[in-house]
Write a protein that binds this DNA or RNA. Structure first.
Lengths: 143, 143
DNA sequence: TATTGTTATACTCTATAACTATA
DNA sequence: TATAGTTATAGAGTATAACAATA
């Protein structure tokens, strides 16, 4: 017996995520960032990725969309692209010094935001939330 | 003592929400809907809203953005707008029969999606997730 | 003057399709 | 031919600013 139906968790998640995403984007904006740029910077810093396609997949966008962002990031001096001498089809994306500084600024803003976001939540509660979110995601990607 | 730092919950939420939001939008798309249209239809059905501004606020968009959506929804025959005779500045937005049917289709798609999303979660876990999400949202809107 | 909503315009993020360069 | 990435173009969703109509 499933019991009384709860309000749709999808709608609930969607509303909260919207609110949080906007506030987060505003927080990044205050240090000159944005969500996609932040996701790209994090990926560049944490993984050592081979191709741009892998980078795009890691973020969940198309290759052409990544090119678009990298173009503007390169225009802003955050990254540098160089052809791999061993395979000149491949572009190697590197952070410049300016990019490193931008990364640190955004990391700071993200950390401050996260503290605010998890105010009043214990470590256990945060972990429980993370686990539940993972299970939702698994239900989506799984089938 | 805060203990070992967990990975940022904001980033985690953002990634899961992205994945879920895209899949949800695709599910709505299969019945001719989209997220903003769905949010507008739900608001029209559940609250009895006075002005468009209240509707926009309920959804979290600007008045001009709502006008944009209502224009296309009216073009598709989903809604009808009529000036309030008592205050002709106010537009009263009503669902047409076509809009009612579209609402039911989207509601069905949303319910199916939600079942899939909460697969394997007990009622208690879903409620716990909803509660935690509310607390995150409160941390954002609160200050 | 203040309120309600619309119009005009533009920005961001995303995508697909066609293309270039390289393998 | 296949692969890596770019260019060209477009569409969805959002926003701000200026405006019209009404109060």
């Amino acid at each position: 017996m499933p019991g009384p139906t709860s309000p749709p968790i999808g709608l609930h998640l969607s509303r909260v995520a919207r609110t949080v995403a906007r506030a987060f984007d505003a927080a990044l904006g205050e240090v000159g960032g944005s969500t996609p740029v932040w996701l790209i910077l994090i990926s560049l810093k944490t993984h050592r990725l081979g191709t741009q396609q892998e980078l795009a997949d890691a973020i969940g966008i198309r290759g052409a969309t990544l090119t678009h962002h990298l173009n503007s990031m390169e225009g802003d001096g955050l990254v540098r692209r160089r052809r791999d001498p061993g395979n000149r089809r491949v572009q190697q994306v590197e952070l410049t010094d300016v990019g490193e500084k931008a990364f640190r600024r955004m990391r700071g803003a993200a950390a401050t935001f996260d503290q605010r976001l998890r105010q009043g939540l214990t470590e256990a509660e945060t972990a429980a939330l993370a686990g539940l979110l993972d299970r939702l995601a698994a239900n989506i990607v799984g089938d």
